[in-house]
Amino acid sequence: MTDYNFAYLDEDTKRMIRRAILKALAVPGYQVPFASREMPMPYGWGTGGVQVSAAILTPEDVMKVIDQGADDTTNAVSIRRFFEKTAGVATTTRTAEATVIQTRHRIPETPLREGQVLVYQVPIPEPLRFLEPRETETRRMHALEDYGLMHVKLYEDIARHGRIATSYAYPVKVEGRYVMDPSPIPKFDNPRLKSEAIQLFGAGREQRIYALPPHCRVESLDFEDHPFEASKADHPCALCGATGSYLDEVITDDAGGRMFVCSDTDFCATRRGEAA
């Protein structure tokens, strides 16, 4: 372990990111600007999450990386190898054994506990960006707690589709103050944003870090007559039979064949191991 500084980043960069993480935890849901570095992977591959993970890792950590719930996809495997090589940390695919979990677009099915940190890769951190493209304006809207535009958007969903059609990156309000983008997790995962673990969100290209401390009040935006609903495909998992987990639809042939399987590969494999 002499080829790299521990966890790749230089110490000045880590201090800068660490200061941003502390301010993010002190103001839950607020997006703290940080000086995102070029990483040896392209923007969009999780550079924000990688920088946050590099800033919090200790030599004693056990790291898990998932991409849409899976440990064995290209993005997850390459980031896991990156930290094996540059930080020398142990890695695992078991949620319960990991102390730091970097994730792209899912929250593990297994409930997280104190002592674990969940690091999200975030593409667009600003929940208001598609409603108002100007950063100066969205910043002012957060300062004034002016979130009427977001409610109009959800209302227009109902007017057009009869229900709130947003199914992922479903906006939440944190501790009754900041509206936050939970990253493109399915809205099925939103109730699990209230967690025992520390949750950190890193957006590399957009240069923002935000956070949810444990036991933080996180409410999915909704209306009294159209309450939030954490939905999923109405099937059991074809492999492990779980009925309460989030499912991926897998096409199995070119004749319309398909199956629904757990998106969380560790959860599914563990259940099948126990059943066998």
Partner: peptide, 17 residues
């Protein structure tokens, strides 16, 4: 690098809890 990593983690856990 290692001492500050361990120290930051303790400080972060303290501020988060």
């Amino acid at each position: 690098a290692l001492d500050s990593a361990r120290a930051f983690r303790a400080a972060m856990e303290a501020l988060a809890r």
